[in-house]
Amino acid sequence: MNFGIGKVSTYIILEIILNDLDRYINIDERDYDFTLEENIPNNTELLYSWLINFDEYPKGFSVEEQKFIEQEIGEYLGGRMSIWFDDEEEIKEIKLKFFKYFGVNNGFFKLIVRIYDEMLQDDNLV
């Protein structure tokens, strides 16, 4: 696979965020807190800035970038996270954890939930 610097950096940022989200879902711990609106720690600032771009999603990204991001999120959710249930209450709990993790970054939260819902429907879990 041939990547440019944009796709490589996007891939790395997604990997960091989704790994931390997975950790939060499984053991309720995280390295990055994106729910803060002020006094964001330096180690979170770059990731937080990247997530803020999703507040206007998809305006800030080209069609190619959107497809890449959605594909990477789908692959991560589908292949690496233990979030697949057929019980409505467990699905609601996962979505609540998504919301609690991302907080004010509604664009990225909405994207994650949309992809999650599409994958649940594809697998006939809802």
Rank of each mutant, 00 (worst) to 15 (best):
R23F: 03
S9H: 03
W84R: 09
I112R: 09
G103N: 05
I25T: 07
I94N: 13
G107V: 10
E64R: 01
L21D: 04
S49W: 08
I91E: 08
E88I: 07
R80H: 14
I115P: 10
Y48L: 00
G78S: 01
L120A: 11
V104M: 05
G6F: 12
S9V: 13
E29W: 00
W84K: 11
E45Q: 02
W84Y: 03
I115W: 06
S9R: 10
N19K: 15
D22M: 03
G103D: 11
K67G: 10
N53P: 06
R30P: 05
L18Q: 13
Y48S: 00
D86K: 10
E38M: 00
G74W: 01
K67F: 09
F108E: 12
E89K: 10
N105Q: 15
K7V: 07
G107T: 02
L36D: 06
Y116F: 10
L111C: 07
E37G: 04
T35V: 05
F61Y: 05
K92P: 00
E15K: 06
I83C: 00
V8R: 15
G6H: 09
K100H: 07
E65M: 13
R114T: 13
S49Q: 12
K110T: 04
E37P: 04
I17C: 03
E37Y: 01
L46I: 11
S9A: 06
N2I: 14
I115A: 04
